[in-house]
């Protein structure tokens, strides 16, 4: 139930919209995430967008891991 695959927001009007979830277009409620914008990536849960995904933070995580591994070598 809790997979972290991101869905890209492709359309929003009011509280509902559409996302592209691995190539499948899905109706999604944005009632819990009204600040989402087209082009952003969100986590979906049971037909609702619950949180945005931050590319910046994902980059930071990878960077930290790589730095740590290099330091160990």
């Amino acid at each position: 139930m809790c997979i972290g695959i991101p869905a890209e927001v492709i359309e929003i009007s009011g509280q509902t919209g559409k996302v592209d979830y691995q190539g499948v277009v899905r109706e999604t409620s944005f009632v819990m995430l009204p600040e989402a914008e087209v082009g952003e990536f969100v986590i979906l849960h049971a037909g609702f967008a619950i949180k945005k995904l931050s590319a910046e933070e994902a980059r930071e995580t990878l960077k930290l891991i790589r730095e740590m591994l290099e330091a160990a070598e």
């Binding site: 972290g4 995430l33 986590i43 949180k51 995904l53 931050s54 590319a55």
Partner: peptide, 17 residues
């Protein structure tokens, strides 16, 4: 660790429900 999704304050709209 999961900072690309989780923030200390969570999702206030969801908590409000």
């Amino acid at each position: 660790q999961y900072s690309r999704v989780v923030t200390p304050g969570g999702n206030l709209n969801a908590l409000r429900f």
